[in-house]
Structures are given as C-alpha cells and as structure tokens.
Nucleic acid binder design. Sequence first.
DNA 1: CATCTTCATGAGACTTGGTCTCATCGGGTC
DNA 2: GACCCGATGAGACCAAGTCTCATGAAGATG
Lengths: 211, 211
Amino acid sequence: MRLGLIGSCGYDATVSRWLPDSHARLEDAALELFAERGFDAVSTTEIAQRAGLSKATFFRYFHDKPEVLFWGQDLLADTFRQAIAGAPSDASPLQLVGAAVLAADGIFDADRHRHAALRARLIASSASLGERAARKRAVLAAAMTDALRARNVADGTADLTGMVGAAIYGAAYERWAASPVYRSFADLAQHEFDLTVLAAADMSARPRASR
Amino acid sequence: MRLGLIGSCGYDATVSRWLPDSHARLEDAALELFAERGFDAVSTTEIAQRAGLSKATFFRYFHDKPEVLFWGQDLLADTFRQAIAGAPSDASPLQLVGAAVLAADGIFDADRHRHAALRARLIASSASLGERAARKRAVLAAAMTDALRARNVADGTADLTGMVGAAIYGAAYERWAASPVYRSFADLAQHEFDLTVLAAADMSARPRASR
DNA sequence: CATCTTCATGAGACTTGGTCTCATCGGGTC
DNA sequence: GACCCGATGAGACCAAGTCTCATGAAGATG
C-alpha cells in the first residue's frame, strides 16, 4: 500500500526500536493536518508531533515543508525519459511525448489517487505551492526535451514538444485527480493527447468567419 | 531612468522629510548586494540598511525577498492581453501570441537590460528563485490563454497556444538578457517566433531516415 | 559476556523570512 | 493651533530551516 522507497536514498524498513516507516508516518500526519486546516496553518513541529517524531526528523525526510506534497516526481521524469528512449524509431516527436505520458500510467494507481484531490486543492490554495508545482512541471518538460534531443530531434522542436508533452501530462493529471472515482490514467492521457493533436493543427489556422 | 510607479499602488514621489524613491533605493541596494554575494547570502535587514531604511519598510514595498527580482510582471501580462485583444481579426492563434510577444518590446528598454544578466544569473543559482520564475511564466501563459479565449479560440487550442506563446517569450527574453550589448527585443522575438512556427510544423513530422 | 560501531533519532540553540502592533513626526487642511 | 494623514522605525513574535551534540538500541566483533 505504501512504497518502501524514499526519494533519493533507498532504504529498507529496518525493524528496530523505532516505529517503522517514519517517512510514511510523517506524510500521513501531514496530509491529515493539511486536510483539516490547510497548508499554511500547520507547522512542521505539529506534523512531527502527530507522527511521534521531532521537527529535526521531519527535515531529515523532507527537504522542506512543501516537499511532503511533491516527493516522488523524479520517478515520473525517469519514466518519461525511458519511454521516449524506447519508443519505435518512426514516431513523430509529438507521438514520442504522447507515449511518455501514457507510460506514466503505472505510477498513478488507486493508492495515489486517494490523496490526489486533496493535493490539488492544497496547491491551488497557496501561492508558494503553485510555484513549486510550476517548477516541477518545467522539470518534466525539460526531461522530455532532453530525451527528444537524445533521439536527434532538432533543438527548437525538442523544446516545444517537451513543453507540449508537459501540458498533455498536466491536463491528464488534473482530470485524473479531479475524478471522484478511480479511473485509468492512460485513458485520460490518450484523450488529452488526441485533443492536443487537434489543437496543434488549429494553432496555425485562420479563424472561420464568426457564425 | 527609473519608474515612479510601484507594482500595485501608484504613488507620486512626495518630497517630504524622507528621502524619495524608497522603492528604487531598496531595489538598487538589493541588486548591488546580490551581485556581490549572491541571493541567499544577503539578508533583508542588510538590504534595508544599505538603502537607509528598516526591514519593515522593505516588506512594505516588496511582498517578499524574491519579489525584488520579479516585480513589474503584471505590466507584461497586461501588455500581452491588450496586444491579443487588439490584433487583426483574421490572425491565427499562433500569430496572435506572436504579436503579443512583439508588443513587449516597449518594456524591455536599455535601462532594464542593464540588470537583466544579473537577474538571470541569480535565478539560475537558486532553486526557490527558479520556482518563482516558473510560476511567473505560467501566469503569462494563462494571460495569453485567457485573451485567446476572449476571441473565441477553442479551449484546447487556447491552452496550447498560450503555452507556446510563453515559450516564445521565454526564449526571446533569455537571448535578450544574455546579450552583452543592448539589442532590440522585437528582433529577437520575431526570430524566436519564426523558429517556433517551423518547430510547430516539425512536431508532427516523422523523422527522416537517419543518413 | 564485553565492547565497539552504526545510525535513526531527540533536544535545542540559532539564523532569517515574514507579520504585526504601536509610536513617531512632518505636511497639509480647516 | 488642532487635526488628520501617511511613510516610517522599533521591536516583539512566529515559523521554516540548519546545525551540533547527545542518546541508546541493534548488530558485529572479540
């Protein structure tokens, strides 16, 4: 139900004198408190206390307070990179990023869906969280751009297509998170991809005479 | 040489018992200190002292420390909006955002160019500044998207084109800031626009058989 | 059994960003 | 002269984040 892996350093849940899974306990405590009172009104000291730990330990597991909501993003960037590197050789750049977003399906399971709506609500409520989210998305775009360049896609095209890929991902994730019941991420991603292909063609079209 | 206008509230430089232009003095002091020692190693107290003011006054003029580097962005978003609203009715969405970026030419004058390289260097050096920059760019994209929707561009197309517009702006600004001598922003923007038109067509193209 | 090492943790001092309240004081107004 | 307005200073106060040192159980070694 919960990953035994932490962002950078893998660790095995050593059964010791301490209660196990400090990382998960801290995350659970934080999400509970955020759900009750919002992000800003909860202090890191309080999160740590509810998890039965100290503030210092909180910052050992999370680089800063927002990171409780954002950890695990590296995995997503890697998934994108690998999907693009491993796609068929006759795919267009747009199809490559489409395949990348579809490949994220495995990450967004039912467990992750449970907190997705809360996360979205919190991020929308705080300017500083919005900044972090924007940056994370830029990192995803850069990951795709790099993977495209590695396949000899021209620089300008790789830049643009990476951003479009991030937009497809963002739209698909938003809908996935907003859905009250669990749905397959791949279905939503495929749908957003199709819409984006149409929109890409539409960008350069002159407007029809209005009605 | 320096605007007499502050972000949200206009004020006139009342000649009174205080030295005028606190805003400008704070900004100058901050940029000097940042240039000397970097963003993180300078405290807001120190900035205020060099400007002959108190920390409290610093936070009256800038909502937070990073804002010293980012204020004035609202003007840019408004410029984009107005340019899109006022463009010829037969323009394609891509041409609309192109026109918007070109319209920013008036903002990027020689005075603003003087500190642009420093700003870029500082932003690249700090993760938190990178987040703020990413968010600001997302706001610009949203401004363009809104203006496109107001012209009856379809939602999906407006979303995508707004992001592309922000990318064009970002690339043009980056080159403008990096140029050691002052250059016309419009020239660079036009060039980036042309490249992006080509890249947009290239996104959907199958790769040529490699040599 | 005794000792040593390892390591996740606690305790708490410390710096700084950011908020808030209250006092100050010159200028303009009536 | 009495009054208010508005930019400012002083400084208390809170929370994020860093850092150092102590602790004590687990496991290894002898």
